[in-house]
Amino acid sequence: MGERNWRKIWQHVAIVLVIVLALMSAAVGGAVALNVDHLGRLAQVLELIHSQYLEKVSGDQLVDGAIKGMVDSLGDPYSTYMDASDNRQLMDLIYGQFGGVGIVLSLKDPNKLIVLQTIKNTPAAKAGILPGDVIVKIDNVDTSSISQDKAVALMRGDPGTKVTLEVYRESEKKTLTMTMTRENISVPTVEGEPLPGQPDIAYIDISQFSTDTGTELAQVLKSMDIQKYKGVILDLRYNHGGELNAAVKVASYFVTPGPVVYIVDKDGHVTTKNAENTYINKPLVVLVNEETASAAEIVSGAIRDRKTGTLVGVKTFGKGIVQTIFQLDSGTSVKLTTAKYLTPDKISINKKGIEPDVQVKLPKGENATVLPLDTNFDPQLATALRTLQAKINR
């Protein structure tokens, strides 16, 4: 590695040391001297790599590794350093479009890549990948040794490129290998239609919260002419969350003006996110399950606390903390947990979840009928319909 490159690294290190010392001085005053050894250790390791390490190492690799290690040391699974590729993919997800195969992964088991669903008309759906399939290899990379975020990054890529997935299908006790060509995946986050067999009941499914979800919902409600329906079933099952402000906009259609969520930062400062004046004022039932998380729990919690609807299903995931993405140089970013949220009744649901008003479990092995095509509803949806009809007939 050239001396010019190493001078650049040492400039980065010097800046880091100055920042760390300034932060330590502000936090602990005279105790700074007790921690100087840690900073000296960092400089010592860099010097050892420079003078002793066999292979060539780029400056960017070392700086990225140092930052990643610092964030990982927080022990927070939701705080992470993202290189330029990871950051670009996250932004694509937030804005609802990316190059990939159209697979949504389950949160249920963090140690396995379990397919939750495939997006309609995408390469994964066309290839025959099914909910419950376990992805064991991505282009010969063993998925048991990588994070879910890394797996998602490997499956995504430029449209027109190929990716090979090896999946294990428990129902058939066999492993399948499928090669797919990536496409531009545009994810519609809101779909609405009359419930099959119930033309006076509006069924609305929200799969995630991207920046456009509030606008999508407004368009769906308008195209359905929502006021002609007697009641609404809102399906938030398997919704892993997303953008906070989108959740507030969505909640505004299902609660009256007033608090949707309270955001509490590290200093205890509270920001209140209020509903807009767009309440549709219809009898409402909300479907939730163990994978209803984050922004979807904000909407569910607001509806429960403001008493504008009934929750049916099982206890939600329990992610009541907020992450902020800070853009850095060279297209990189760091995502940090910066606040917690409380429901309108000032309840923290982090690691607790939200208990539904009506508990209904799916039988083992039975899939939820999200966006049903006929009247063969799963037990949760069937209970939601009966609950809504009882509300309408009061």
Rank of each mutant, 00 (worst) to 15 (best):
A151I: 01
A125G: 03
E355T: 03
K273D: 03
V57R: 10
K8L: 12
V18D: 03
Q389P: 03
A66E: 02
S171D: 15
I303C: 09
K68A: 03
A31D: 09
Y168I: 05
P283G: 15
D305R: 04
T383A: 15
K319R: 04
Y262I: 00
L54H: 13
N376L: 14
I146C: 07
E290C: 01
T316S: 15
D76I: 00
V370H: 14
I321C: 09
V136W: 05
H50Q: 14
L221H: 09
V261S: 09
L287N: 11
N5P: 00
K307C: 11
N140W: 01
D225G: 13
L42C: 11
T387Y: 09
L373E: 15
I204H: 12
V370W: 13
T308D: 11
N35G: 05
D345G: 10
K68S: 07
V141G: 03
K361D: 14
I354K: 02
G30W: 09
S51R: 05
D86C: 01
V18A: 08
W10M: 04
V32P: 02
L287H: 07
V28T: 02
T324Y: 05
L54P: 12
A251E: 09
P283K: 06
G99M: 06
P372G: 15
P123C: 06
G75Q: 03
D305L: 12
H38R: 01
V28S: 07
P259A: 10
V220Q: 12
G241H: 04
N121M: 08
R304D: 07
D83Q: 00
D76S: 03
P199N: 14
G99F: 06
K282I: 10
L90P: 00
I119D: 08
V71H: 05
Q208N: 11
E243H: 04
R169L: 04
A127Y: 07
I201S: 14
E243D: 07
D109Y: 04
H269M: 11
N274C: 02
V16R: 01
K228Q: 15
G128L: 09
A295C: 05
G29S: 11
I103K: 03
Q359T: 13
H12M: 02
V16K: 00
F317Q: 05
L46T: 04
V136C: 10
G132Y: 06
Q198Y: 15
A127V: 02
L234D: 13
